[in-house]
């Protein structure tokens, strides 16, 4: 506090509350829509206060057929698919980035820099710009409609490798020297010293990557045609298309709510790790 300006303090709080209201408004409307029955949601203007059908909609969405008249998989199945995909992407990315960063920082071997630049290139090629040929590769490998196809093409990560490289470079050389004097080999050193020392970085990265994996949209959309493999995030678009014929906004918005709860929960519950992960991976 630099100076005492009560009016400015009041204004600060008001602006922040207004900002929060603007940011939260879409979610509030979604929540309200998920608490009314289908009939109420076809009458304009739509309600702004919650109704009493939350649990009925919840049950119908999660365990029932979801949208009536659609052939989509039940929502619990889609949530499970999303969870599997997000976990595979996050764990896979962390695992392969950890070991490749370890190799690049702690070993001197021919083509070391060549490998480093090859990994660096992946940073520059987001999936959106090379969708068609990547799709062909995945189709040729027979990985369409599988968890492998959903996750493996996305698990190479330059940012994660860079981050672990950065972390390893800050670890004092003396640790390695003493470990070697005590007779530890490379894998022992990696497992017993490097991994425990970078535990918080791994956790922070996990938070970011889980959200990244959960929110994947274009890639699952292309490579899954089987209703049993659809992810929850994808299903929203299919429901929006169905809504043009028979709007069931209460179910659609309940699905949207279910789709955003896991990643939002992760951000809010692990806020400190989330902020750390975000600032470390991008800078």
């Amino acid at each position: 506090m630099i100076e005492n300006r009560p009016i400015l303090n009041l204004v600060s709080h008001l602006v922040l509350i207004l900002g929060i209201a603007i940011v939260a408004l879409p979610i509030w409307i979604t929540f309200v829509a998920a608490t009314h029955d289908a009939v109420r949601m076809t009458q304009a203007p739509i309600p702004m206060l919650p109704g009493g059908h939350f649990w009925a909609n919840f049950k119908q969405t999660l365990f029932g057929a979801g949208l009536s008249g659609s052939e989509a998989a039940p929502v619990w199945r889609m949530l499970l698919n999303s969870l599997t995909m997000a976990m595979m992407i996050a764990v896979g990315k962390i695992a392969i980035s950890l070991i490749s960063a370890f190799a690049i920082v702690y070993f001197k071997f021919p083509f070391r820099m060549g490998f480093f630049w090859m990994i660096f290139i992946t940073l520059m090629l987001p999936v959106e710009v090379r969708i068609l040929p990547t799709f062909e590769v995945v189709a040729d490998l027979g990985m369409l409609n599988s968890y492998w196809g959903l996750s493996i093409p996305l698990i190479a990560s330059a940012t994660a490798t860079f981050m672990f490289r950065q972390v390893f470079l800050t670890i004092p050389d003396e640790l390695l020297e003493s470990a070697r004097i005590d007779g530890a080999g490379p894998l022992r050193f990696f497992w017993d010293i490097l991994i425990p020392l970078s535990r918080t970085n791994i956790a922070a990265l996990f938070v970011i990557l889980f959200i990244y994996g959960w929110n994947q949209y274009l890639w699952p959309l292309l490579i899954t045609t089987d209703a049993d493999m659809t992810t929850i995030v994808m299903s929203i678009k299919q429901m929006l298309e169905a809504a043009e014929q028979s709007p069931q906004w209460n179910i659609i918005m309940m699905t949207a709510l279910l789709a955003m709860i896991p990643p939002v929960f992760v951000v809010v519950a692990m806020q400190k790790l989330f902020v750390q992960g975000l600032t470390e991976t991008d800078k």
Binding site: I96, S97, I99, S100, F115, I119, T134, V137, P153, A156
Partner: peptide, 16 residues
């Protein structure tokens, strides 16, 4: 150690 990362990079990034 670098093999998995390089393999994924080659198959799903550089080749496409």
């Amino acid at each position: 150690l670098v093999a998995p990362q390089i393999l994924v990079t080659l198959v799903f990034f550089i080749w496409p």
